[in-house]
Design a protein around this nucleic acid. Structure first.
Lengths: 204, 204
DNA sequence: CGTGTATAGTGAAATCTGCAGTACTGCGAA
DNA sequence: TTCGCAGTACTGCAGATTTCACTATACACG
């Protein structure tokens, strides 16, 4: 990724590490792909690699070129692809009436555990940032915070939903019916109210 | 998808339509793939297809088999893959200091517009459900509501974040610094408080 | 009778992922 | 001093998935 190289030159391995640590939650890519990327970018002239060696091991350190910086500027100006989300747990929940109540609850507990893992990771990061008197890249903290806020809210939403869904499913006699239409309709009624708060004008 | 066929038999084309309308937001797949899937499932004996014709056009209607129902039960019992999220807008935001303030705000406005589109779609669905005296599959409404709640909260989170991020970025003199460290650190401080509310015990 | 929209897909190339495997470095223990 | 082992730094390849273009029929409407 040109962006990472724009911050500082790095080897493919380092880029992979950066991507795994920080980009994973909103830009998931297989490591295999990340190793190919710098090669492709070099072929396009957007980065240059020069070999460094430690003993007899060679590693290529890549650096962004002016053409690369131009490409990066163009990328920022071009429209972004719509966000995508994928979750097997939500899929299972949407077909919840095809399994038993106990199994469905199990799925939701698992989803909640995953979300809580994300929250715990986020908390650890916040603690280390608040704890450190002065970190190495404090100058980027304001942008990091914007990104962090998203990731944290995302996990929070998942955890809250899973928790709520566990209660909701728990209130059903079994997965085939809820026995409380008013409660079910409440979801849609509240959605209407919440959408009114967030949507600027009433469009269709 | 076996789940959809378990609700009722359908042709590949109908399955594609169902998936596009309802599963898109949490199970995105290329249409091409959806057309392959029933063939694969038939080869595995999990569904059976029989040809129907309208004039000289043939379409294959698939139906789930007992083996398919067994596979579905196994799927529900097996652990779910962790959820994945991908957003070019959040990626751009995380590298926000590499562009200008104006362009970054543009990215966020776009992201907000996309989220609001999702909310508007959700509102339309809620209206039609609350409006309809009795819909065709009212018996599944309780599970649909659980799934709906997730998707709606997801778009709400995106919209709120984008809105907040616009304000945050707006408060910076330019993308290189924030001039208000206290405000930036507030993000992490609040995260600590929010995580305490959602995480059960304090684990590392 | 023509035209546009919805139906119902297929073919082929390009891209991406998962997984296993290679080979070197640095470190601690024996 | 040397052995083993964890970590570093990737590559090869098969199979899965996506993208994009393309075909062809049905049906409603004017």
């Amino acid at each position: 990724m040109l962006g990472l190289l724009s911050l500082r030159p790095a080897s493919a391995y380092e880029l992979v590490g950066q991507a795994r640590r920080s980009l994973r939650h909103f830009w998931p890519r297989a490591e295999r792909q990340l190793y190919e990327e710098p090669k492709r970018l070099e072929a396009l002239g957007l980065v240059v690699g020069h070999e460094e060696r430690t003993g007899k091991r060679v590693r290529t350190v890549y650096e962004i070129t002016d053409a690369g910086r131009r490409a990066l500027r163009e990328w920022f100006a071009s429209p972004s692809a719509p966000a995508q989300f994928e979750s097997e747990a939500v899929l299972k929940a949407s077909l919840g009436d095809l399994t038993t109540k106990e199994r469905l609850l199990q799925v939701l507990r698992e989803a909640r555990a995953q979300a809580e893992e994300g929250l715990a990771e986020g908390r650890a990061i916040a603690e280390s940032i608040l704890g450190a008197g002065a970190s190495d890249d404090r100058e980027r903290l304001h942008v990091v915070a914007v990104m962090y806020e998203f990731v944290f809210s995302y996990f929070e939403t998942m955890a809250r939903w899973a928790r709520w869904a566990e209660e909701e499913v728990g209130s059903w006699p079994d997965t085939s019916r809820s026995d409380d239409l008013h409660r079910t309709l409440g979801v849609f009624r509240r959605a209407l109210i919440r959408s009114a708060r967030l949507l600027p004008k009433s469009r269709t």
